[in-house]
Simulated scan of single mutants.
Amino acid sequence: MIETPSFPPLLAGEVVPNNMDPFEKAVSRAIAGVDSGTVFYSEAGDNLRAALVLAPETPLEQAIQAVYVAQIGLAESLGALAPPEVPVHFQWPDRIKVNGAICGKIRYAADVSDPGAEPKWLVVGIEIPFIPHGDDPGANPNETCLLEEGCSEVTPMALLESWSKHTLLWLTYFLDDGAERVHREWRPRCDTLGETVEKPKHGVFVGLDEKGRMLLRDGPMTETISLIQFAEQV
């Protein structure tokens, strides 16, 4: 029996065939004018693939920070469903880490790329592996899945349901209180903050500015790098 997720008020779910990418479906439907708050998802049991359509009423440089909201929503969902000893962290701009290894990602796209332009739509998606891909789970030690991290009791639909609720809650905080509250919640979960990184380029990741841009210091110079640069092209 297929588990059917329950979505909170203001969100509505739409299942897509398992051979179809929910993110791509969400983008195509957003272009056609689907309602904001629609969550497209696959019922496949090997991973969670879902995408939420938003209709921001702010410039892209503000709206794009919904990426951080989606990450926080996912971390809180795993915190509620997974064993308490399973740590969840972020790797800027879009990776999710469980027990120190990459375990899925956030995907996002909008109909504009100009930071000052107001997008008609913004799609934010998640992809979280539940079982190992391939015959040798240890082939990629920097990657993991929820089954390998002791989360065998967590199902994709239960995680989707929880993610939708926590993400909606944090979207409300974001709209009501601005980005700083989101940043305060996000920073402690980023395990490369304060560290030297090589991606997207070499430097010390010293924080986020008020627009959610990465602050990367290399010697005496500090530059800003926007999430917008890493949005998927549609």
Rank of each mutant, 00 (worst) to 15 (best):
V53R: 07
S113N: 07
G116F: 05
S152M: 02
G37I: 10
V98L: 03
K25C: 06
D135Y: 13
P83I: 09
L146P: 13
I131D: 13
V67R: 02
L60H: 03
G134H: 05
K97D: 05
T155F: 11
F130V: 08
T144L: 10
G138H: 14
R95N: 14
E148Q: 15
Q65R: 09
V154R: 03
P93L: 06
Q91E: 04
A110L: 01
R49L: 07
T155N: 11
G138V: 01
P56L: 02
N47Q: 04
E43P: 00
G45K: 11
T155I: 04
Q71D: 01
P22F: 00
D46L: 03
H89T: 15
A50Y: 12
I31C: 07
L54H: 13
S36L: 05
A70Q: 09
V67W: 02
I102T: 14
E149H: 02
A82Q: 07
P115S: 06
H133Y: 08
I72C: 03
V123E: 08
L78W: 06
V88W: 09
I128M: 09
N99H: 01
G125I: 06
F40L: 15
K97C: 11
A30I: 14
D94E: 11
Y68E: 01
D46P: 02
I126G: 09
F40P: 13
G79W: 04
A80Y: 11
E127C: 14
E118A: 06
L147K: 14
I126N: 08
S113L: 14
E153H: 15
K25F: 04
S113P: 09
G73F: 05
K120P: 00
K120M: 00
E127H: 13
P115H: 02
A66I: 07
K97R: 11
A110M: 10
L54E: 12
S42G: 15
A80C: 04
D111A: 06
I128W: 05
E57Q: 14
P56G: 03
P132W: 04
I128D: 06
Y41N: 10
